[in-house]
Write a protein that binds this DNA or RNA. Structure first.
Length: 573
RNA sequence: CGGGCUGUGGCGCAGCUUGGUAGCGCGCGACGUUUGGGACGUCGAGGUCGUCGGUUCAAGUCCGACCAGCCCGACCA
Protein backbone atom coordinates (compact mmCIF):
# COMPACT_ATOMS: atom_id res chain seq x y z
CA UNK A 1 0.00 0.00 0.00
CA UNK A 2 1.12 3.51 -0.77
CA UNK A 3 0.47 5.94 2.04
CA UNK A 4 -0.18 8.78 -0.38
CA UNK A 5 -3.32 7.00 -1.58
CA UNK A 6 -4.38 5.31 1.66
CA UNK A 7 -7.10 6.53 3.98
CA UNK A 8 -5.13 6.88 7.20
CA UNK A 9 -6.66 9.89 8.91
CA UNK A 10 -4.24 10.57 11.75
CA UNK A 11 -5.14 13.31 14.20
CA UNK A 12 -2.98 15.53 16.32
CA UNK A 13 -5.70 16.39 18.77
CA UNK A 14 -7.06 13.64 20.93
CA UNK A 15 -10.80 13.16 20.86
CA UNK A 16 -12.13 14.91 23.93
CA UNK A 17 -13.92 11.85 25.21
CA UNK A 18 -10.99 9.43 25.00
CA UNK A 19 -10.53 8.10 28.49
CA UNK A 20 -8.41 4.99 27.90
CA UNK A 21 -5.00 5.27 26.22
CA UNK A 22 -5.96 2.66 23.65
CA UNK A 23 -9.08 4.61 22.76
CA UNK A 24 -7.09 7.80 22.23
CA UNK A 25 -4.29 6.17 20.25
CA UNK A 26 -6.54 4.09 18.01
CA UNK A 27 -8.53 7.19 17.08
CA UNK A 28 -5.49 9.45 16.69
CA UNK A 29 -3.66 6.83 14.66
CA UNK A 30 -6.53 6.55 12.20
CA UNK A 31 -7.46 2.96 13.12
CA UNK A 32 -11.09 3.55 13.96
CA UNK A 33 -13.90 6.05 14.38
CA UNK A 34 -16.85 6.05 16.70
CA UNK A 35 -20.23 5.87 15.00
CA UNK A 36 -22.38 5.92 18.12
CA UNK A 37 -22.08 4.88 21.73
CA UNK A 38 -20.30 1.54 21.79
CA UNK A 39 -20.21 1.19 18.02
CA UNK A 40 -17.00 1.67 16.06
CA UNK A 41 -15.99 1.71 12.42
CA UNK A 42 -12.75 -0.14 11.77
CA UNK A 43 -10.79 1.84 9.22
CA UNK A 44 -8.25 0.15 7.00
CA UNK A 45 -5.50 0.09 9.63
CA UNK A 46 -7.85 -1.15 12.35
CA UNK A 47 -9.26 -3.82 10.12
CA UNK A 48 -5.77 -5.07 9.23
CA UNK A 49 -4.97 -5.48 12.93
CA UNK A 50 -8.33 -7.08 13.60
CA UNK A 51 -7.79 -9.63 10.84
CA UNK A 52 -4.35 -10.50 12.16
CA UNK A 53 -5.70 -11.02 15.66
CA UNK A 54 -8.52 -13.12 14.25
CA UNK A 55 -5.98 -15.10 12.21
CA UNK A 56 -3.95 -16.00 15.28
CA UNK A 57 -7.09 -17.12 17.09
CA UNK A 58 -8.19 -19.17 14.09
CA UNK A 59 -4.82 -20.90 13.79
CA UNK A 60 -4.77 -21.88 17.43
CA UNK A 61 -8.39 -23.01 17.45
CA UNK A 62 -7.77 -25.17 14.42
CA UNK A 63 -4.67 -26.55 16.11
CA UNK A 64 -6.77 -28.02 18.93
CA UNK A 65 -9.20 -29.53 16.47
CA UNK A 66 -11.72 -26.72 16.34
CA UNK A 67 -14.15 -26.73 13.43
CA UNK A 68 -15.13 -23.27 12.26
CA UNK A 69 -18.73 -22.53 11.39
CA UNK A 70 -20.78 -19.40 10.82
CA UNK A 71 -24.00 -18.92 12.78
CA UNK A 72 -26.75 -16.38 12.34
CA UNK A 73 -26.84 -13.31 14.52
CA UNK A 74 -30.58 -12.85 14.10
CA UNK A 75 -32.32 -15.32 16.40
CA UNK A 76 -35.96 -16.15 16.92
CA UNK A 77 -36.83 -15.23 20.48
CA UNK A 78 -38.16 -18.73 21.15
CA UNK A 79 -34.75 -20.33 21.46
CA UNK A 80 -33.78 -17.84 24.13
CA UNK A 81 -36.96 -18.63 26.00
CA UNK A 82 -36.28 -22.33 25.59
CA UNK A 83 -32.89 -22.01 27.27
CA UNK A 84 -34.32 -19.76 29.96
CA UNK A 85 -31.93 -16.98 29.12
CA UNK A 86 -34.46 -14.53 27.70
CA UNK A 87 -35.31 -13.41 31.21
CA UNK A 88 -31.85 -14.06 32.58
CA UNK A 89 -30.09 -11.74 30.16
CA UNK A 90 -32.76 -9.11 30.61
CA UNK A 91 -32.07 -5.73 29.08
CA UNK A 92 -28.64 -6.69 27.78
CA UNK A 93 -30.31 -8.58 24.99
CA UNK A 94 -31.12 -6.53 21.88
CA UNK A 95 -34.69 -7.20 20.82
CA UNK A 96 -36.52 -6.39 17.62
CA UNK A 97 -39.60 -7.30 15.64
CA UNK A 98 -39.88 -8.32 12.03
CA UNK A 99 -42.60 -7.17 9.61
CA UNK A 100 -44.96 -9.86 10.77
CA UNK A 101 -44.54 -8.77 14.35
CA UNK A 102 -42.46 -11.81 15.32
CA UNK A 103 -39.97 -11.21 18.10
CA UNK A 104 -36.30 -11.56 17.28
CA UNK A 105 -33.16 -11.01 19.28
CA UNK A 106 -29.59 -10.28 18.26
CA UNK A 107 -27.14 -12.91 19.43
CA UNK A 108 -24.95 -12.00 22.39
CA UNK A 109 -23.46 -15.52 22.55
CA UNK A 110 -24.49 -18.71 20.81
CA UNK A 111 -25.00 -21.60 23.23
CA UNK A 112 -28.58 -21.94 22.03
CA UNK A 113 -27.76 -22.47 18.38
CA UNK A 114 -24.84 -24.77 19.03
CA UNK A 115 -27.12 -26.66 21.42
CA UNK A 116 -29.63 -27.09 18.61
CA UNK A 117 -26.89 -28.34 16.30
CA UNK A 118 -25.65 -30.70 19.01
CA UNK A 119 -29.06 -32.35 19.05
CA UNK A 120 -28.04 -33.94 15.75
CA UNK A 121 -25.41 -35.96 17.62
CA UNK A 122 -26.52 -39.44 18.63
CA UNK A 123 -23.50 -41.47 19.71
CA UNK A 124 -20.58 -41.11 22.07
CA UNK A 125 -18.51 -42.27 19.11
CA UNK A 126 -19.05 -38.85 17.51
CA UNK A 127 -17.49 -37.13 20.52
CA UNK A 128 -15.54 -35.13 21.43
CA UNK A 129 -16.27 -32.14 19.19
CA UNK A 130 -14.98 -28.59 19.32
CA UNK A 131 -17.07 -26.13 17.31
CA UNK A 132 -16.41 -22.46 16.92
CA UNK A 133 -17.22 -19.35 15.02
CA UNK A 134 -16.10 -15.73 14.94
CA UNK A 135 -18.71 -13.11 14.29
CA UNK A 136 -20.52 -10.11 15.63
CA UNK A 137 -22.13 -10.17 19.04
CA UNK A 138 -24.58 -7.58 20.29
CA UNK A 139 -25.04 -6.51 23.88
CA UNK A 140 -27.14 -3.57 24.93
CA UNK A 141 -24.64 -2.36 27.51
CA UNK A 142 -26.02 0.22 29.91
CA UNK A 143 -22.84 2.20 29.61
CA UNK A 144 -20.40 1.62 26.75
CA UNK A 145 -17.03 3.18 27.53
CA UNK A 146 -13.29 3.31 27.00
CA UNK A 147 -13.27 2.87 23.24
CA UNK A 148 -13.09 -0.80 22.31
CA UNK A 149 -12.99 -2.01 25.90
CA UNK A 150 -16.73 -1.98 26.40
CA UNK A 151 -18.94 -1.78 23.34
CA UNK A 152 -22.38 -2.83 22.19
CA UNK A 153 -21.29 -4.55 18.99
CA UNK A 154 -18.09 -6.56 18.68
CA UNK A 155 -16.48 -9.63 17.22
CA UNK A 156 -16.22 -12.63 19.46
CA UNK A 157 -14.63 -15.97 18.85
CA UNK A 158 -16.91 -18.34 20.67
CA UNK A 159 -16.18 -22.04 20.81
CA UNK A 160 -17.95 -24.96 22.41
CA UNK A 161 -16.70 -28.35 23.46
CA UNK A 162 -19.03 -31.34 23.43
CA UNK A 163 -18.22 -34.44 25.44
CA UNK A 164 -19.78 -37.58 26.80
CA UNK A 165 -18.45 -37.22 30.33
CA UNK A 166 -16.75 -34.83 32.67
CA UNK A 167 -13.19 -36.10 32.09
CA UNK A 168 -13.85 -35.27 28.45
CA UNK A 169 -15.02 -31.80 29.42
CA UNK A 170 -11.90 -31.33 31.52
CA UNK A 171 -9.77 -32.27 28.52
CA UNK A 172 -11.57 -29.83 26.23
CA UNK A 173 -11.31 -27.13 28.87
CA UNK A 174 -7.57 -27.71 29.27
CA UNK A 175 -7.05 -27.65 25.51
CA UNK A 176 -8.71 -24.27 25.41
CA UNK A 177 -6.77 -23.01 28.37
CA UNK A 178 -3.46 -23.79 26.70
CA UNK A 179 -4.65 -22.57 23.29
CA UNK A 180 -5.68 -19.28 24.90
CA UNK A 181 -2.27 -18.91 26.50
CA UNK A 182 -0.64 -19.32 23.10
CA UNK A 183 -3.11 -16.92 21.47
CA UNK A 184 -2.47 -14.12 23.95
CA UNK A 185 1.27 -14.68 23.91
CA UNK A 186 1.27 -14.43 20.11
CA UNK A 187 -0.83 -11.26 20.34
CA UNK A 188 1.84 -9.73 22.55
CA UNK A 189 -0.14 -9.41 25.76
CA UNK A 190 0.72 -10.90 29.13
CA UNK A 191 -2.61 -12.51 29.99
CA UNK A 192 -2.90 -14.54 33.16
CA UNK A 193 -5.58 -17.11 33.87
CA UNK A 194 -7.57 -16.49 37.03
CA UNK A 195 -10.45 -18.26 38.76
CA UNK A 196 -13.72 -16.53 37.98
CA UNK A 197 -17.39 -16.53 38.73
CA UNK A 198 -19.53 -18.17 36.07
CA UNK A 199 -22.13 -15.45 36.47
CA UNK A 200 -25.13 -15.68 34.22
CA UNK A 201 -23.56 -18.47 32.17
CA UNK A 202 -24.05 -21.05 34.88
CA UNK A 203 -21.82 -24.09 35.08
CA UNK A 204 -19.29 -25.39 37.52
CA UNK A 205 -16.00 -23.72 36.86
CA UNK A 206 -14.72 -20.79 34.90
CA UNK A 207 -11.39 -19.15 34.21
CA UNK A 208 -10.79 -15.65 32.92
CA UNK A 209 -7.75 -14.40 31.03
CA UNK A 210 -6.76 -11.00 32.31
CA UNK A 211 -4.29 -8.42 31.03
CA UNK A 212 -3.05 -6.14 33.76
CA UNK A 213 -4.08 -2.54 33.03
CA UNK A 214 -5.54 0.37 34.90
CA UNK A 215 -7.93 0.84 31.99
CA UNK A 216 -9.50 -2.51 32.84
CA UNK A 217 -12.66 -2.89 34.85
CA UNK A 218 -12.00 -6.15 36.63
CA UNK A 219 -10.30 -6.41 40.01
CA UNK A 220 -7.94 -9.33 40.33
CA UNK A 221 -6.56 -10.87 43.48
CA UNK A 222 -3.15 -12.53 43.35
CA UNK A 223 -0.89 -14.00 45.98
CA UNK A 224 2.56 -12.53 46.27
CA UNK A 225 4.24 -15.87 46.73
CA UNK A 226 2.14 -18.72 45.34
CA UNK A 227 0.12 -19.00 42.13
CA UNK A 228 -3.31 -18.27 43.62
CA UNK A 229 -5.12 -15.95 41.21
CA UNK A 230 -8.80 -15.05 41.18
CA UNK A 231 -11.22 -12.40 40.11
CA UNK A 232 -12.43 -10.36 43.07
CA UNK A 233 -15.91 -11.73 42.32
CA UNK A 234 -14.60 -15.16 43.19
CA UNK A 235 -11.53 -14.57 45.35
CA UNK A 236 -11.42 -15.72 48.89
CA UNK A 237 -8.96 -15.41 51.73
CA UNK A 238 -8.05 -17.31 54.85
CA UNK A 239 -9.96 -16.33 57.96
CA UNK A 240 -8.07 -15.56 61.11
CA UNK A 241 -9.17 -17.34 64.26
CA UNK A 242 -11.31 -15.20 66.49
CA UNK A 243 -12.14 -16.20 70.01
CA UNK A 244 -15.24 -14.62 71.42
CA UNK A 245 -14.71 -15.85 74.98
CA UNK A 246 -18.31 -16.59 75.81
CA UNK A 247 -19.72 -13.29 76.94
CA UNK A 248 -22.98 -12.30 78.54
CA UNK A 249 -26.48 -13.25 77.49
CA UNK A 250 -28.14 -11.23 74.77
CA UNK A 251 -29.45 -7.82 75.86
CA UNK A 252 -30.66 -4.59 74.36
CA UNK A 253 -28.84 -1.32 74.77
CA UNK A 254 -29.64 2.20 73.64
CA UNK A 255 -27.51 3.63 70.82
CA UNK A 256 -29.11 7.01 70.05
CA UNK A 257 -27.91 8.48 66.76
CA UNK A 258 -25.35 5.73 66.13
CA UNK A 259 -26.02 4.61 62.60
CA UNK A 260 -22.68 3.40 61.29
CA UNK A 261 -20.35 0.57 62.22
CA UNK A 262 -17.62 3.04 63.00
CA UNK A 263 -19.75 5.35 65.14
CA UNK A 264 -20.97 2.42 67.18
CA UNK A 265 -17.46 1.07 67.60
CA UNK A 266 -16.15 4.42 68.79
CA UNK A 267 -19.01 4.90 71.24
CA UNK A 268 -18.79 1.38 72.69
CA UNK A 269 -15.24 0.13 72.06
CA UNK A 270 -15.52 -2.53 74.75
CA UNK A 271 -18.42 -4.42 73.10
CA UNK A 272 -18.67 -3.21 69.52
CA UNK A 273 -15.32 -3.41 67.78
CA UNK A 274 -16.06 -3.63 64.04
CA UNK A 275 -15.04 -7.29 63.92
CA UNK A 276 -17.49 -7.96 66.75
CA UNK A 277 -20.40 -6.41 64.86
CA UNK A 278 -22.77 -8.08 62.45
CA UNK A 279 -23.42 -5.87 59.42
CA UNK A 280 -26.97 -6.50 58.20
CA UNK A 281 -27.74 -5.68 54.57
CA UNK A 282 -31.04 -5.99 52.76
CA UNK A 283 -31.04 -7.12 49.15
CA UNK A 284 -33.59 -8.13 46.60
CA UNK A 285 -32.82 -11.31 44.65
CA UNK A 286 -35.31 -11.63 41.83
CA UNK A 287 -37.71 -9.48 43.86
CA UNK A 288 -37.31 -11.62 46.95
CA UNK A 289 -36.03 -9.59 49.91
CA UNK A 290 -33.23 -11.30 51.81
CA UNK A 291 -30.93 -10.39 54.67
CA UNK A 292 -27.20 -10.59 54.19
CA UNK A 293 -24.96 -10.76 57.24
CA UNK A 294 -21.27 -9.99 57.13
CA UNK A 295 -18.73 -8.95 59.70
CA UNK A 296 -18.72 -5.26 60.55
CA UNK A 297 -15.26 -4.65 59.15
CA UNK A 298 -15.99 -6.48 55.88
CA UNK A 299 -17.69 -5.53 52.61
CA UNK A 300 -20.11 -7.62 50.61
CA UNK A 301 -19.05 -8.91 47.18
CA UNK A 302 -22.38 -8.91 45.36
CA UNK A 303 -21.44 -11.49 42.74
CA UNK A 304 -20.72 -13.96 45.53
CA UNK A 305 -24.20 -13.38 46.93
CA UNK A 306 -25.64 -13.99 43.49
CA UNK A 307 -23.58 -17.16 43.12
CA UNK A 308 -24.67 -18.36 46.56
CA UNK A 309 -28.31 -17.72 45.71
CA UNK A 310 -28.13 -19.60 42.44
CA UNK A 311 -28.41 -17.94 39.09
CA UNK A 312 -30.56 -14.88 39.57
CA UNK A 313 -32.07 -12.49 37.16
CA UNK A 314 -31.57 -9.45 39.26
CA UNK A 315 -29.80 -8.35 42.40
CA UNK A 316 -30.19 -4.96 43.96
CA UNK A 317 -29.80 -3.31 47.31
CA UNK A 318 -33.09 -2.46 49.00
CA UNK A 319 -34.19 1.15 49.28
CA UNK A 320 -34.46 2.68 52.78
CA UNK A 321 -38.26 2.84 52.58
CA UNK A 322 -38.43 -0.84 51.65
CA UNK A 323 -36.17 -1.67 54.58
CA UNK A 324 -38.35 0.20 57.06
CA UNK A 325 -41.35 -1.65 55.77
CA UNK A 326 -39.64 -5.04 56.05
CA UNK A 327 -37.83 -4.67 59.35
CA UNK A 328 -39.37 -1.69 61.10
CA UNK A 329 -36.13 0.21 61.39
CA UNK A 330 -33.78 2.30 59.29
CA UNK A 331 -30.38 1.19 58.03
CA UNK A 332 -28.02 1.53 60.95
CA UNK A 333 -30.20 -0.31 63.40
CA UNK A 334 -30.85 -3.51 61.48
CA UNK A 335 -30.36 -7.06 62.60
CA UNK A 336 -31.42 -10.63 61.88
CA UNK A 337 -32.21 -11.73 65.41
CA UNK A 338 -35.74 -13.10 65.48
CA UNK A 339 -36.23 -12.75 61.73
CA UNK A 340 -37.91 -15.87 60.40
CA UNK A 341 -39.90 -14.69 57.40
CA UNK A 342 -36.90 -13.66 55.29
CA UNK A 343 -34.11 -15.82 53.98
CA UNK A 344 -30.85 -15.01 55.76
CA UNK A 345 -27.45 -15.34 54.05
CA UNK A 346 -24.42 -15.19 56.31
CA UNK A 347 -20.74 -14.95 55.56
CA UNK A 348 -18.45 -17.73 56.73
CA UNK A 349 -16.51 -15.34 58.90
CA UNK A 350 -19.51 -15.24 61.25
CA UNK A 351 -19.89 -18.99 61.60
CA UNK A 352 -19.74 -20.07 65.24
CA UNK A 353 -19.25 -16.57 66.53
CA UNK A 354 -20.83 -15.32 69.72
CA UNK A 355 -20.89 -12.25 71.94
CA UNK A 356 -21.57 -10.06 68.90
CA UNK A 357 -23.39 -6.78 68.46
CA UNK A 358 -26.10 -6.11 65.91
CA UNK A 359 -29.05 -3.82 65.33
CA UNK A 360 -32.30 -4.49 67.18
CA UNK A 361 -34.60 -3.58 64.28
CA UNK A 362 -35.70 -0.57 66.28
CA UNK A 363 -34.11 2.78 65.56
CA UNK A 364 -31.44 3.74 68.09
CA UNK A 365 -31.30 0.29 69.72
CA UNK A 366 -28.75 -2.50 69.35
CA UNK A 367 -28.33 -5.98 70.76
CA UNK A 368 -25.18 -7.29 72.42
CA UNK A 369 -24.17 -10.79 73.41
CA UNK A 370 -25.59 -12.16 70.20
CA UNK A 371 -24.69 -15.72 69.26
CA UNK A 372 -24.98 -16.75 65.61
CA UNK A 373 -25.95 -20.31 66.49
CA UNK A 374 -28.37 -19.52 69.26
CA UNK A 375 -30.01 -16.26 68.17
CA UNK A 376 -30.05 -16.08 64.37
CA UNK A 377 -31.80 -18.36 61.90
CA UNK A 378 -29.27 -18.55 59.04
CA UNK A 379 -30.56 -20.20 55.88
CA UNK A 380 -27.41 -20.08 53.76
CA UNK A 381 -23.80 -19.96 54.87
CA UNK A 382 -21.48 -18.80 52.12
CA UNK A 383 -18.31 -16.93 51.34
CA UNK A 384 -19.74 -13.47 50.71
CA UNK A 385 -17.08 -10.97 51.72
CA UNK A 386 -14.94 -8.97 49.33
CA UNK A 387 -11.24 -9.67 49.66
CA UNK A 388 -9.12 -6.61 50.35
CA UNK A 389 -5.45 -5.96 49.70
CA UNK A 390 -3.29 -7.51 52.39
CA UNK A 391 -5.67 -10.37 53.19
CA UNK A 392 -4.19 -13.79 53.81
CA UNK A 393 -3.82 -16.17 50.87
CA UNK A 394 -6.12 -19.18 51.26
CA UNK A 395 -3.48 -21.48 49.77
CA UNK A 396 -0.15 -20.50 51.27
CA UNK A 397 -0.83 -17.88 53.92
CA UNK A 398 1.11 -15.08 52.26
CA UNK A 399 -0.30 -11.67 51.52
CA UNK A 400 -2.82 -11.02 48.73
CA UNK A 401 -2.68 -8.05 46.43
CA UNK A 402 -5.35 -6.41 44.25
CA UNK A 403 -4.90 -5.00 40.78
CA UNK A 404 -7.03 -4.00 37.80
CA UNK A 405 -7.14 -5.80 34.50
CA UNK A 406 -8.90 -6.27 31.19
CA UNK A 407 -10.83 -9.49 30.68
CA UNK A 408 -9.71 -10.66 27.22
CA UNK A 409 -11.04 -14.20 27.41
CA UNK A 410 -13.31 -16.34 29.53
CA UNK A 411 -13.73 -20.11 29.50
CA UNK A 412 -16.57 -22.01 31.19
CA UNK A 413 -17.38 -25.57 32.12
CA UNK A 414 -21.05 -25.35 31.28
CA UNK A 415 -22.38 -28.81 31.94
CA UNK A 416 -25.66 -30.01 30.49
CA UNK A 417 -27.92 -26.96 30.79
CA UNK A 418 -28.10 -26.28 27.05
CA UNK A 419 -27.93 -29.85 25.85
CA UNK A 420 -30.90 -30.67 28.06
CA UNK A 421 -32.77 -27.58 26.90
CA UNK A 422 -32.28 -28.47 23.25
CA UNK A 423 -32.34 -32.24 23.44
CA UNK A 424 -28.69 -32.94 22.72
CA UNK A 425 -28.40 -36.50 24.03
CA UNK A 426 -26.05 -39.26 22.94
CA UNK A 427 -25.87 -42.94 23.77
CA UNK A 428 -22.91 -44.47 25.57
CA UNK A 429 -21.37 -47.93 25.02
CA UNK A 430 -24.18 -49.55 26.97
CA UNK A 431 -26.82 -47.83 24.91
CA UNK A 432 -28.06 -45.52 27.64
CA UNK A 433 -28.69 -41.89 26.82
CA UNK A 434 -26.80 -38.93 28.31
CA UNK A 435 -26.97 -35.21 27.74
CA UNK A 436 -23.87 -33.90 26.00
CA UNK A 437 -21.58 -32.04 28.40
CA UNK A 438 -20.67 -28.63 27.08
CA UNK A 439 -17.92 -26.12 27.63
CA UNK A 440 -18.07 -22.58 26.31
CA UNK A 441 -15.08 -20.41 25.48
CA UNK A 442 -14.91 -16.78 24.35
CA UNK A 443 -12.38 -14.21 23.19
CA UNK A 444 -13.29 -10.62 22.36
CA UNK A 445 -11.32 -9.70 19.27
CA UNK A 446 -11.53 -5.89 19.46
CA UNK A 447 -11.10 -5.88 23.20
CA UNK A 448 -7.96 -7.90 22.57
CA UNK A 449 -6.77 -5.17 20.20
CA UNK A 450 -7.35 -2.57 22.88
CA UNK A 451 -5.49 -4.68 25.43
CA UNK A 452 -2.53 -4.93 23.05
CA UNK A 453 -2.41 -1.16 22.75
CA UNK A 454 -2.85 -0.64 26.49
CA UNK A 455 0.24 -2.72 27.08
CA UNK A 456 2.29 -1.72 24.03
CA UNK A 457 2.66 2.03 23.67
CA UNK A 458 4.87 4.94 24.60
CA UNK A 459 4.54 8.71 24.58
CA UNK A 460 4.84 8.77 20.78
CA UNK A 461 2.12 6.27 20.05
CA UNK A 462 1.39 2.59 19.58
CA UNK A 463 4.10 -0.10 19.42
CA UNK A 464 2.45 -3.01 17.63
CA UNK A 465 3.94 -6.45 18.08
CA UNK A 466 4.96 -7.69 14.63
CA UNK A 467 2.37 -10.46 14.79
CA UNK A 468 -0.58 -8.05 14.79
CA UNK A 469 0.87 -4.90 13.22
CA UNK A 470 -1.20 -3.33 10.43
CA UNK A 471 2.05 -3.27 8.47
CA UNK A 472 5.31 -4.88 9.44
CA UNK A 473 7.51 -2.29 7.74
CA UNK A 474 7.09 1.32 6.68
CA UNK A 475 9.42 2.80 4.10
CA UNK A 476 9.71 6.47 4.90
CA UNK A 477 10.80 8.37 1.83
CA UNK A 478 12.45 11.68 2.58
CA UNK A 479 12.08 13.94 -0.42
CA UNK A 480 9.52 11.82 -2.24
CA UNK A 481 9.74 14.47 -4.95
CA UNK A 482 13.38 13.58 -5.64
CA UNK A 483 13.46 11.10 -8.47
CA UNK A 484 16.51 9.07 -7.45
CA UNK A 485 15.26 8.76 -3.88
CA UNK A 486 11.76 7.83 -4.93
CA UNK A 487 13.03 5.21 -7.34
CA UNK A 488 15.28 3.61 -4.73
CA UNK A 489 12.40 3.53 -2.25
CA UNK A 490 9.99 2.07 -4.77
CA UNK A 491 12.44 -0.68 -5.67
CA UNK A 492 12.89 -1.53 -2.02
CA UNK A 493 9.11 -1.54 -1.56
CA UNK A 494 8.62 -3.97 -4.41
CA UNK A 495 11.44 -6.22 -3.23
CA UNK A 496 9.90 -6.44 0.22
CA UNK A 497 6.49 -7.24 -1.23
CA UNK A 498 8.10 -9.98 -3.27
CA UNK A 499 9.50 -11.70 -0.20
CA UNK A 500 6.14 -11.49 1.54
CA UNK A 501 6.69 -8.62 3.95
CA UNK A 502 3.66 -6.49 4.85
CA UNK A 503 5.02 -3.12 3.82
CA UNK A 504 3.63 0.36 3.33
CA UNK A 505 5.44 2.97 1.29
CA UNK A 506 5.19 6.44 2.80
CA UNK A 507 5.55 8.34 -0.47
CA UNK A 508 3.65 11.41 0.68
CA UNK A 509 5.23 14.75 -0.15
CA UNK A 510 5.47 15.81 3.47
CA UNK A 511 8.19 17.11 5.68
CA UNK A 512 10.24 14.40 7.39
CA UNK A 513 9.00 15.31 10.85
CA UNK A 514 5.41 14.64 9.83
CA UNK A 515 6.27 11.25 8.43
CA UNK A 516 8.35 10.17 11.39
CA UNK A 517 5.68 11.28 13.82
CA UNK A 518 2.93 9.50 11.89
CA UNK A 519 4.86 6.24 11.60
CA UNK A 520 5.47 6.28 15.34
CA UNK A 521 1.88 7.15 16.19
CA UNK A 522 0.61 4.35 13.95
CA UNK A 523 3.17 2.05 15.52
CA UNK A 524 4.64 0.09 12.62
CA UNK A 525 7.39 -2.14 14.10
CA UNK A 526 10.13 -1.41 11.56
CA UNK A 527 10.88 1.77 9.66
CA UNK A 528 13.26 2.09 6.75
CA UNK A 529 14.28 5.66 6.10
CA UNK A 530 15.31 6.34 2.53
CA UNK A 531 16.81 9.78 1.87
CA UNK A 532 18.81 11.43 -0.91
CA UNK A 533 22.01 11.45 1.13
CA UNK A 534 21.87 7.75 1.87
CA UNK A 535 20.77 6.74 -1.61
CA UNK A 536 23.83 8.53 -3.00
CA UNK A 537 26.14 6.53 -0.75
CA UNK A 538 24.12 3.32 -0.96
CA UNK A 539 22.72 3.11 2.57
CA UNK A 540 19.38 3.36 4.32
CA UNK A 541 18.41 3.47 7.98
CA UNK A 542 16.47 0.84 9.87
CA UNK A 543 14.63 1.93 12.98
CA UNK A 544 12.80 -0.29 15.40
CA UNK A 545 9.59 1.17 16.77
CA UNK A 546 10.26 -0.29 20.19
CA UNK A 547 13.08 1.75 21.65
CA UNK A 548 13.54 3.70 18.39
CA UNK A 549 16.94 2.12 17.79
CA UNK A 550 18.42 3.15 14.44
CA UNK A 551 21.08 1.30 12.46
CA UNK A 552 22.54 2.05 9.04
CA UNK A 553 22.28 -0.76 6.49
CA UNK A 554 23.54 -1.13 2.96
CA UNK A 555 20.70 -0.71 0.54
CA UNK A 556 21.48 -4.06 -1.05
CA UNK A 557 21.23 -6.04 2.15
CA UNK A 558 18.28 -4.29 3.79
CA UNK A 559 15.69 -6.71 2.43
CA UNK A 560 17.32 -9.74 3.97
CA UNK A 561 17.97 -7.88 7.22
CA UNK A 562 14.35 -6.87 7.47
CA UNK A 563 13.02 -10.24 6.47
CA UNK A 564 14.93 -12.01 9.20
CA UNK A 565 13.84 -9.51 11.85
CA UNK A 566 10.23 -9.64 10.71
CA UNK A 567 10.28 -13.43 10.81
CA UNK A 568 11.60 -13.40 14.35
CA UNK A 569 8.85 -10.97 15.33
CA UNK A 570 6.10 -13.01 13.70
CA UNK A 571 7.16 -16.15 15.54
CA UNK A 572 7.48 -14.69 19.01
CA UNK A 573 5.45 -16.59 21.57
C1' C B 1 -32.18 3.88 35.77
C1' G B 2 -30.23 8.08 39.34
C1' G B 3 -26.47 12.37 39.53
C1' G B 4 -23.40 15.69 36.54
C1' C B 5 -21.40 17.81 32.02
C1' U B 6 -21.34 18.77 26.75
C1' G B 7 -23.52 19.49 21.59
C1' U B 8 -20.92 26.01 17.32
C1' G B 9 -16.89 24.29 9.65
C1' G B 10 -13.28 17.67 9.29
C1' C B 11 -10.68 17.88 14.61
C1' G B 12 -9.91 20.84 19.20
C1' C B 13 -12.35 25.13 21.17
C1' A B 14 -14.08 30.58 22.21
C1' G B 15 -18.63 33.38 21.82
C1' C B 16 -24.01 32.60 25.68
C1' U B 17 -23.70 35.88 31.96
C1' U B 18 -25.40 41.43 29.37
C1' G B 19 -29.97 39.06 22.42
C1' G B 20 -28.20 42.89 17.10
C1' U B 21 -27.12 37.78 12.37
C1' A B 22 -20.36 33.72 13.94
C1' G B 23 -14.74 33.65 15.42
C1' C B 24 -9.73 31.29 16.80
C1' G B 25 -6.00 27.20 16.35
C1' C B 26 -5.13 22.80 13.60
C1' G B 27 -6.56 20.54 9.16
C1' C B 28 -8.17 21.33 3.76
C1' G B 29 -7.42 23.72 -1.83
C1' A B 30 -4.13 26.94 -5.16
C1' C B 31 0.58 29.37 -5.89
C1' G B 32 5.49 30.33 -4.14
C1' U B 33 9.62 29.54 -0.78
C1' U B 34 10.99 25.20 2.05
C1' U B 35 12.32 19.70 3.05
C1' G B 36 16.78 14.33 8.17
C1' G B 37 11.84 15.45 13.56
C1' G B 38 4.99 17.91 13.40
C1' A B 39 7.82 24.79 8.15
C1' C B 40 6.48 29.78 6.27
C1' G B 41 3.97 33.55 3.16
C1' U B 42 -0.19 35.11 0.05
C1' C B 43 -4.96 33.95 -1.62
C1' G B 44 -9.18 30.71 -0.93
C1' A B 45 -13.12 26.93 0.25
C1' G B 46 -15.98 25.25 4.19
C1' G B 47 -20.94 26.42 9.48
C1' U B 48 -29.62 25.78 8.52
C1' C B 49 -24.63 27.13 15.90
C1' G B 50 -27.97 18.94 17.88
C1' U B 51 -33.66 18.96 16.78
C1' C B 52 -38.45 21.00 17.45
C1' G B 53 -41.31 24.69 19.63
C1' G B 54 -41.79 29.39 22.42
C1' U B 55 -40.49 34.67 23.93
C1' U B 56 -38.81 39.02 21.02
C1' C B 57 -38.67 44.03 16.05
C1' A B 58 -34.41 40.60 16.34
C1' A B 59 -32.13 34.15 19.22
C1' G B 60 -25.75 30.60 18.77
C1' U B 61 -27.13 33.65 23.16
C1' C B 62 -33.32 33.68 26.92
C1' C B 63 -37.39 29.72 28.06
C1' G B 64 -39.49 24.62 27.31
C1' A B 65 -39.46 19.77 25.36
C1' C B 66 -36.85 16.16 22.90
C1' C B 67 -32.40 13.76 20.76
C1' A B 68 -27.29 12.50 20.94
C1' G B 69 -22.47 11.96 23.27
C1' C B 70 -19.35 11.77 27.63
C1' C B 71 -18.26 11.26 33.02
C1' C B 72 -19.66 9.23 38.15
C1' G B 73 -22.83 5.60 40.24
C1' A B 74 -26.07 1.48 39.46
C1' C B 75 -25.39 -2.47 36.00
C1' C B 76 -22.26 -5.93 33.17
C1' A B 77 -19.90 -13.21 30.38
Amino acid sequence: MRWSHAFIPTLRDAPADADAVSHKLLVQGGFMRQLSAGSYTMLTLGQRVRLKVAGIIREEMNAIGGQEMMLPTLHPVEIWKQSGRFDLMGENLFKLKDRKGADLVLGMTEEEIFGILASELFSYRQLPQIWYQMNTKFRDEPRPKSGLLRVREFTMKDSYSLDIDSPGLDAGFDKHRSAYKRIFARMGVAAVDVQASSGAMGGTESVEFIVRSNAGEDWIVTCESCDYRANLEKATSALSDVTDDGGPDMSRYATPGLRTIRALAEAHPEIARPDRQIKTLVYYLDNEPVLVLIRGDHDLQEQKLLDAAGVGEEIRAAQPEEIVELLGAHPGSLGAVGVIDLRVFADESLRGRSNLTTGANEDDWHLQGVSMERDINVNVWADLRAVVSGDVCPICGSSLELWKGIEVGHIFKLGTKYSEAFGAYVQDEEGSSHPVIMGSYGIGVERGMAAIVESNHDEKGIIWPVSVAPFEVVITVLRADDEATANAATKLYEDLLTVGVDVILDDRVERPGVKFADSELVGIPFRVTVGPRGVESGVVEMTTRRGLVTTEVGIDSVVSHLLSQVEVGRAVL
